[in-house]
């Protein structure tokens, strides 16, 4: 059984399509990263999967059931984001107690140990926490719930680098000890390369790419060299990204389907090849193609006037 299955999923907010004909599925017990630019539809997708909002058209299934208004999905899913709303009257340890009462797989021991480690006080209230602390606490709830499908929407918002690192380790350790499906959206893909197994890249509400992390790292190659030398190589290829750096120097990212012979030719032509990180690749693949150019153009144009 698939943990997540979406077919031709569409969701609109005020006539704007947040999700557009999205089809993908996730196997059980995988850690999947959901990436995409701001407004790509990551949060919308996650809220539909956790049953908070309803898809307009298309089929969505979590463990074979439709999530909207479904108790089974609610019992086996937890959705963690930075806007978690807990009753303001409850103290932090009381919130953890409530979690224990609700979730069958809840590991209270783990929750308390993480609670101690990150330096929370039992008598604090959730709304009095700082942004980073709040995210950390929500993360503890997410990990301790041991939900078969755990959804983290930008779990690291506000966390400092050290806490983020701890979070990745905690996530990985707990996942290895208790495998489950984890869907996680992030803007820090470069930090999570070692944690994620698969990457789902959304762009403007549609699926742009869904592959394993290893494949994604090998997917493309970066070339830099003189424009005149580069042109013949780029002809007829899938150029994912191109940027002119200096007067006659340019950097391009292409699909990594070069043969050994082509590599040698490039070296002779003085073109330097380099690997492209998954994080950079995702940014290149989803960069605006409507001819707006880079943010530099915004400033150059205004200076002219």
């Amino acid at each position: 059984m698939k943990a997540i299955k979406c077919e031709a999923l569409t969701k609109t907010y005020y006539r704007k399509k947040a999700l557009n004909d999205l089809t993908f599925s996730v196997e059980e017990n995988k850690i999947v990263g959901l990436v995409g630019r701001n407004g790509a539809g990551k949060t919308t997708l996650m809220k539909i999967l956790s049953g908070f909002s309803k898809a307009k058209t298309g089929v969505v299934e979590v463990y074979g059931r439709r999530p909207f208004n479904n108790l089974f999905v609610s019992a086996n899913t937890i959705y963690i984001d930075d806007q978690m709303n807990f009753p303001t009257t409850l103290m932090l340890n009381e919130i953890l107690e409530e979690g224990r009462r609700f979730y069958h797989n809840w590991d209270h021991d783990l929750a308390l140990r993480l609670f101690e480690y990150f330096g929370f006080h039992r008598k604090q209230h959730h709304n009095e926490l700082s942004k980073g602390k709040e995210s950390t606490f929500n993360m503890i709830v997410g990990l301790a719930s041991r939900s078969p499908l755990t959804i983290f929407d930008e779990p690291t918002t506000g966390m400092d680098a050290a806490v983020r690192k701890d979070f990745y380790r905690a996530l990985l350790k707990d996942y290895l000890a208790h495998p489950r499906t984890i869907l996680l959206s992030t803007h820090h893909l470069e930090e999570m390369e070692d944690v994620l197994e698969e990457v789902v890249l959304l762009h403007e509400g549609s699926l742009h790419l869904h592959m394993s992390m290893d494949d994604l790292k090998e997917y493309s190659v970066g070339l830099s060299g003189k424009i005149s030398e580069m042109e013949p190589f780029l002809q007829g290829r899938d150029v994912l990204y191109k940027q002119n750096r200096a007067v006659d120097d340019c950097y391009a990212v292409i699909r990594n389907d070069l043969t050994g012979g082509e590599y040698r030719q490039m070296q002779q032509a003085g073109i330097i090849t380099s690997p492209v990180s998954a994080s950079d690749l995702c940014v290149y693949m989803t960069s605006e193609t409507s001819g707006k150019g880079s943010v530099d153009d915004v400033f150059e144009r205004s200076a002219d006037r």
């Binding site: 463990y63 108790l71 089974f72 019992a75 086996n76 009753p87 009462r101 609700f102 078969p148």
Partner: peptide
């Protein structure tokens, strides 16, 4: 991770307890 079937009655009971403890302002 094993999937859990839950009964509506069980969750209603838990929710009542939760509300009882949480909404002390009333």
């Amino acid at each position: 991770m094993s999937l859990n079937e839950v009964q509506t009655a069980e969750i209603v009971k838990r929710q009542i307890g939760y509300k009882w403890r949480a909404y002390t302002g009333v």
